[in-house]
């Protein structure tokens, strides 16, 4: 474990806590894409398949349970909790996210480190996570103004993978034979997808204005 990875995990944890806080306290999921949340459930479900078979550390298992539990409960809230579900704008959140999964599974079957069920599933979850934010960013373009919590959620979610990139660079230079091109490239693509959001988020913060992405 290194400081970059810890910062990444804490930023990721903060993003799901911000979203849970928003949904649980103000009972609103306005501006939040259910499609992205559903993709994240699949990302965690396919990435942590080995949660009971391979033990890395208490920290690792605990965080996996937290990410699994939070992503499932966010989807549950947005789908089945009456008050929250009412604030979900279904008309705007129309990204066909199931179509995102197909290329990811095909790519995972073609490009992976080992052709085993667990490894292909794990690689699929990496590719899927790289594009999971797309429905949320599309929704953001459509809903004119978004509230601070949703903006912070997206900012933290994008930032965590940025810390992971620093972690991979650090591990590359400190651990011999630590080379994982698949992880590095999909992590880089994932972070780059946030580039324009980061730009407009920074502008809104600098000019102290509401965050608005250009249509």
């Amino acid at each position: 474990m290194n400081i970059f990875r810890l910062a990444g995990d804490m930023t990721h944890l903060a993003s799901v806590l911000v979203l849970l806080l928003k949904i649980h306290t103000i009972k609103s999921c306005a501006g939040v894409s259910l499609k992205t949340q559903e993709l994240y459930v699949i990302v965690f479900a396919t990435r942590y398949l080995d949660i009971f078979t391979s033990f890395v550390s208490i920290y690792n298992s605990l965080m996996k349970l937290i990410f699994l539990g939070s992503s499932f409960s966010i989807v549950w809230y947005m789908r089945y909790h009456k008050a929250v579900h009412r604030t979900y704008d279904r008309e705007q959140d129309t990204f066909r996210h199931w179509f995102l999964m197909l290329p990811c599974i095909l790519l995972a079957l073609l490009i992976h480190e080992k052709f085993t069920f667990f490894e292909v599933m794990w690689t699929f979850s990496l590719y899927l996570e790289a594009v999971a934010i797309l429905p949320q960013l599309v929704l953001l373009q459509r809903t004119r103004n978004i509230d601070n919590l949703t903006g912070q959620y997206i900012f933290l979610l994008g930032g965590y993978r940025g810390f992971y990139i620093l972690n991979w660079i650090y591990r590359y230079f400190t651990e011999p034979h630590y080379v994982h091109w698949i992880t590095w490239i999909s992590g880089l693509v994932q972070t780059l997808l946030y580039a324009d959001f980061f730009y407009y988020y920074f502008l809104s913060w600098k000019n102290n204005k509401k965050l608005q992405l250009p249509a």
Partner: peptide
């Protein structure tokens, strides 16, 4: 033998 390399990152 290289032990089963499990993924140690989240």
């Amino acid at each position: 033998a290289n032990e089963e390399e499990s993924h140690d990152e989240l």
